[in-house]
Amino acid sequence: MPPTPATSSTSPPSTGAPVTGAGSVDGLFGRDFLRRLEKLKLASRRLVSGAQRGEHRSRKRGSGIEFADYRPYVEGDSLRFVDWPAYLRFDKLLVRQFEEEGDLPVYLLLDCSESMATPIRSSQASTTPRDSANLTKFDFARRVIAAIAALGLDNLDRIIMAGFAGGLTKRCPPMRGSRQIHRTLAFLESLETGADTNLELSVTQFFNEPRRRGLVVVVSDFLHEEGASPLTKLAGLRHDLLAVRVLDGRDLAPRLPRRAQVIDAETGNSVILEEQPDRNDVYRELVKDHADQVRDVCRRNAWSFVDANTDAPFDQVLLDLLRAGHMRR
């Protein structure tokens, strides 16, 4: 698929070599981290169709090994699939159908806005020495994307990645097979934060091109006015969606002085906060409401929502992703 003119695509080297700790990969994604990912498999709760055979059930009846259904025999059908015992019993020619396993398109959209660039407080998500300093929310989100991508590649799913902020900033050509993990990680490494968020425009740009139904994973902090509501556009396209909200502990429970002037990292807007005894309580309520809004959007469309706190161990986040039903060991 050719890249759109508005965006640039990277051409990571297709080495096909296993991830053994090459420079860029070893920087953000440690070896232990990658080894853990290999054990995970991605699953989709919906049956999707795929041009290439993958390890996901498909609506297509084909040459798989798992029995799906009978249908009357028509001319041209191979006699190999005729159920002769059924013919003897019912005096009808019935053809056995099998579920054809297809690949799952997985669209990974990563929020690259400036709000994701804030350093995270906790180092629990760190897996390498580099993590001990300057690990940002964006890094954390990239690891989430990397984990999902690795599982998808290992599962022979088709992985399409893109970064977005005010629009699509960078996209990666579709990749399939575990050998592409290097390219995937290199792409993630190449992403940078900047500008403010425009999720609606980004989603519109990404899905303007014909896309097969698949799993859309959006990793963002959703800290913009629209929240997750622009994602509802995808409901008509019958995609499955997993929304991952990445928030730092300081986003959840900030410690501010009595008088503070908070400055928006994206827009530069500032708000003067006067002394207020219950300020933190009110803020926590607002954060909870914000999460509820995103969750409501997902629930209305039968999508999944995972709240990924950077303070929590990364394994815990992966566990939550598994519980959301999109990955399996």
């Binding site: 986003d251 990292a265 708000v271």
Partner: peptide
């Protein structure tokens, strides 16, 4: 004391807080 400037990912929730107050 002057208000201390603090960079936050988004002032969205803070604006809501001020509005609510």
């Amino acid at each position: 004391p002057p208000a201390q400037k603090i960079l936050v990912p988004s002032s969205l929730l803070w604006e809501q807080l001020v509005e609510q107050t």
